[in-house]
Design a protein around this nucleic acid. Structure first.
Lengths: 237, 237
DNA sequence: TGATGGCTCAATGTATACAATAAAACAAGC
DNA sequence: GCTTGTTTTATTGTATACATTGAGCCATCA
């Protein structure tokens, strides 16, 4: 069942680089799909065991994930899946507003039939996943949809930013989202493709803005305070 | 003269983390200030010698720089300072247009006397550096100015993006810029602070747009083809 | 019974040793 | 004399061993 086995097997012939890349994506996907929940500890030994490489390679991967803010590296304490704060959540969604909406005119200009069909297919698979209760898959397809659109802008740098922001958004949804309630059968993504295919960048931008605002508004932004130590912080500070 | 010595000395008492951070900044600064030119090879042994730590730490730092696109990591060939392509240059400046201009309204709203004074001081030091012929210092101060403004927006995520983009811009200027001709005594930065302090986000945004366009327009976008192998590529492709 | 002190253990930080590979130097042949 | 094949060397890739440190546990004492 675990795809770690698949990675391990295919690694025997693959070059080291692809192996590392595969492991990186396995961990990254597990985080984005919320199979690894925020706060989960990622021990180097354990990961090294699971994937069949030494801690050296694992550390490299953890550092990369840390730079993308998907895992938090606490000195001498190791790695854990990042638990985004409310402030970070706001930053991420504000950044998505600015970048993704700003990209819409470019995307609309470069959108062709083939691209529109690909996007519609992604949106369709996302809806199917939601209907089938495959939440992990739906989360990942939703993120992929946004990333793919950003890539169609032709700006690889901004697309990479969007990819990072979408990954972090999944984490945010895991912490602050209502379980089961995400996007929920909405046809937002289909509508968006329509505006883009019509070459209407302005309208697509406005729609994307509403779309992102709707997602953000569906979150319940209550920072769960830590279990006990508030007294220490109050008097210590 | 070399600040590597300073890093090495101060490291004896500092904790490992700060040491690594200092080394990272030393290398990063050297790249941004164009003391390490695009294409320069960065051998692990050599860096390990210079900074007095083992290759393990150096590799960590190089990987971080690679994710920021400041160095390029070629498998089995090692690290070298990234030589941006013309396409990448366009992406970077387009991204700066979108993000930095989009940030202006927020910055204008949050700008106070203290912040304005700080920015004016940075702009002043930049002009002085230019007048004194201290090109390296001027480049770095100019990048710092843009980064500081982005930080004033209050969005740490977008500020980090801008920081990365500004570093890459320095690299782009090193490759495609006319030597000696950068910003050149212009008072753009001072003017920008004026608009921001007046709370005029719209005007600041338009001005930033022109400012960035001017920088980009000053570049000569000629991709120097590689020394010999064009024949092979022509017939091989 | 609860808290504090020391002790043990587990997990990370760092360096180094070894293996693999690509570049370079050199030699041989056309 | 230039090209091509081989050997050598230099440099990176990987794993592992050792040092360091934070956390959990237990015993002791109030």
């Amino acid at each position: 069942m675990s795809n770690a086995q698949a990675v391990k097997r295919s690694a025997s012939k693959a070059e080291g680089d692809e192996r590392h890349e595969a492991i990186y994506r396995a961990v990254s996907d597990a985080i984005v799909e919320q199979r690894l929940k925020p706060g989960a500890r990622l021990r180097e030994d354990a990961l090294a065991d699971v994937f069949g490489i030494s801690r050296t390679g694992i550390r490299k991967i953890l550092q990369r994930l840390a730079l993308e803010q998907l895992v938090t590296l606490t000195p001498r304490r190791g790695a854990s899946v990042t638990r985004p704060t409310a402030d970070e959540a706001k930053d991420v969604f504000d950044a998505r507003q600015l970048i993704e909406c700003g990209l819409m005119p470019d995307v609309a200009r470069r959108m062709g039939e083939k691209e529109a069909a690909e996007l519609r297919d992604m949106a369709k698979r996302e809806r199917q996943a939601l209907r089938n209760g495959e939440q992990s898959l739906a989360i990942r397809l939703s993120a992929d949809f946004h990333v793919r659109i950003a890539q169609l802008s032709g700006n690889a740098t901004l697309a990479a930013f969007v990819e990072s922001l979408c990954s972090r958004s999944s984490l945010i949804l895991a912490v602050y989202g209502h379980p089961g309630h995400l996007g929920c059968e909405s046809h937002d993504h289909d509508d968006l493709v329509g505006y883009l295919e019509a070459g209407n960048g302005e309208r697509a931008s406005a729609f994307m803005s509403r779309h992102l605002k709707a997602i953000e508004a569906s979150l319940s932004m209550v920072e769960e305070e830590e279990s006990a130590p508030d007294l220490h912080q109050i008097f210590g500070g």
